[in-house]
Design a protein around this nucleic acid. Structure first.
Lengths: 135, 135
DNA sequence: ATAAATAGGACTAAAAAGGTCGTATATATA
DNA sequence: TATATATACGACCTTTTTAGTCCTATTTAT
């Protein structure tokens, strides 16, 4: 419970690895999956999502790979989480993220507003931490 | 992702309900499940766990039910979460909560210590909030 | 032309969460 | 003392979510 997904985990490990690469050399998905013993296909998809969201830049073809799109201290943890999981999938309760009709006790639920405050605190933590802090 | 479970949700709704009961009258699981339209059996189990952990007190038999074991401001959100889900099930990553051998990339994982710091911040939030704050 | 790389959809497997069922036990009261 | 009403709790099933795999297409340096 309250778990971040493996995708986030792999994304962070990858970003940390790319960020620590000297001279901004490109890094391939294979290199990362081999080094950290994680599923190549899954990691590849995560990197594709990070690319789509402009967090990293990809180069296709031979000698291709990935580099960071901006400096580590410009990449917030929340950027990474939102890129990989989608902004609406990050919340303590379903009712905060989705439409009221998604929750069958929305009208009678008494705890959604108190929990929203806690949610804000957690969101702020993710907004305040950047990749530079996990290198 | 990062969701609290329905059990926690139901537990908090129930505690809020019991806490707002006048004169400390006992409240039955049925009353709560009817009022908030939640599964009776599931709620009953949650209340049983809260009882075992000494957060509420149960009375069996006719005219039985539940009352709070202590004042709302003495019941921390973390108490409730730990009682229902178990302390070791609350963490951003598996490796923090469980044995290193549970994580097949433990030795190579580069993000466990940075994430542990974020975990601490979140834990502190749950330690600081009490049931009195959600009534 | 070829080999090495990313892109991405479709699918399957595994794990976690949510929910149900059956039975036992306790107890107020008619 | 029989009964109805309540909690206690393990076993089980179903659904949802997460994790992982497979296949094919595209890009590009050599």
């Amino acid at each position: 419970m309250l778990h971040l997904s493996k995708k986030i985990e792999y994304g962070l490990i990858a970003l940390r690895h790319i960020a620590s690469e000297v001279n901004g050399c490109v890094v391939t998905a294979k290199e990362i999956s081999d080094k950290y013993h994680i599923s190549y296909e899954l990691l590849a998809k995560v990197l594709q999502k990070l690319t789509r969201e402009g967090i990293i830049i990809s180069y296709q073809g031979v000698k291709g790979g990935y580099i960071l799109a901006r400096k580590p201290d410009q990449i917030k943890l929340s950027d990474v989480i939102y890129a990989i999981e989608g902004k609406s999938n990050i919340s303590l309760m379903n009712c905060e993220a989705e439409k009221p009709e998604m929750c069958n006790i929305f009208s009678t639920c008494t705890i959604k507003y108190p929990l929203a405050k806690i949610q804000d605190i957690i969101n702020n933590v993710f907004n305040d931490v950047t990749i530079s802090e996990i290198v």
